[in-house]
């Protein structure tokens, strides 16, 4: 018998079996869909967040806030100190009035607060762009310390701390996603295995007849493996579809909400989608393999 005919036989028998016991099959499909959906959601969020953090990392700056009472020579010294290292890529000076303007643009609802303050409520600052790959951490810290200790400097603010925190958060997100996804995948494997074992039990008389007329184990078990495979694949497809619909729902065109613009800005890459479908299909096969011990297929 040609491989094509064998596969066609397995597929045909598996589809008939799925159709006959569609309720329990649907349960198995939904279980695997749920596990892939949750795992995929974590992947989608962490992937987008990683991309955002990477962008922020590239745009990270050190902000040096200057004393408004400082002498011009002191300010020149700070400017020179700020732009001195080779790994500093840009230095942009922001005046107090420009800082106030930015504040008003960023927080329009509280701009009146500034009116009650003095004419120049916010200090001037230097925005220093840098390429951290060019400097060691120790050199960078030493440079920051020098700036902080300068009497013309009020404070030095830098993005690395919260970028590190975001990195840690992404790591936790991925870890939780992996643990939850794996746990649900395990549940899905068990569910599919149970459904297939139940199907095999329901068809045990049929299986006994097949054995009697000379069917090999390949022909008896093959359709069940295909059944698990189809259940896994359908569950995976359902999960990806649900994930995409959820993505479209959260991120409609022109959305300005944080979740839409930042956390789910881009859908999963096709490689990840294929991987999710592969995992779902393998989980289905695994459920079938684990459930089909010989004694399960033996009639009373």
């Amino acid at each position: 018998m040609s491989l094509f005919r064998i596969l066609a036989y397995f597929l045909g028998e598996a589809l008939v079996s799925l159709w006959r016991s569609w309720r329990v099959s649907l349960l198995a499909i939904m279980t695997i869909a749920m596990s892939i959906l949750i795992g995929g959601t974590f992947l989608l969020l962490s992937g987008n967040l990683s991309r955002v953090v990477e962008n922020w990392r590239q745009e990270a700056k050190v902000i040096v806030y200057l004393q408004s009472s400082a002498a011009a020579s002191d300010l020149d010294r700070v400017r020179a100190l700020s732009s001195q290292p080779a790994w500093v890529s840009s230095v942009h000076e922001v005046s107090g009035s420009e800082a106030s303007l930015r504040f008003r643009e960023t927080f329009p609802s509280v701009q009146d607060v500034l009116k009650s303050w003095e004419n120049e409520p916010l200090p001037a600052s230097l925005e220093v762009g840098f390429d951290l790959s060019q400097a060691s951490n120790e050199v960078f810290e030493s440079w920051l310390e020098t700036l902080r200790s300068d009497p013309a400097v009020i404070m030095v603010d830098e993005d690395r701390d919260w970028l590190r925190q975001l990195d840690a958060f992404i790591g936790i997100l991925r870890g939780v996603g992996a643990v939850v996804g794996l746990a649900l995948l395990g549940a899905a494997v068990i569910t599919i295995g149970s459904v297939i074992r139940l199907t095999a039990y329901l068809y045990r008389d049929e299986i006994a007849v097949m054995r009697l007329v000379g069917a090999t184990e390949l022909y008896i078990r093959g359709p069940f493996f295909f059944e698990g495979l189809i259940q896994g694949l359908l569950g995976g497809l359902l999960a990806v579809l649900g994930l995409y619909l959820g993505f479209l729902g959260v991120n409609p065109k022109g959305s300005t909400i944080l979740l839409g613009t930042v956390l789910v800005d881009r859908f999963l890459p096709w490689q990840t989608i294929l991987a999710l479908l592969g995992v779902a299909t393998l989980a289905g096969c695994l459920g079938a393999v684990l459930s089909l011990r010989r004694e399960d297929l033996t009639a009373e």
Partner: peptide, 27 residues
């Protein structure tokens, strides 16, 4: 060939499918 007292036909399959099973798996 084996024949039993209780026939052991597969009730969900037609007569053709019942008797045609072995030829089917033989390709």
């Amino acid at each position: 060939g084996v024949v039993f007292q209780d026939f052991r036909l597969i009730p969900r399959r037609t007569i053709f499918e019942n008797i045609g099973y072995l030829p089917r798996i033989l390709g």
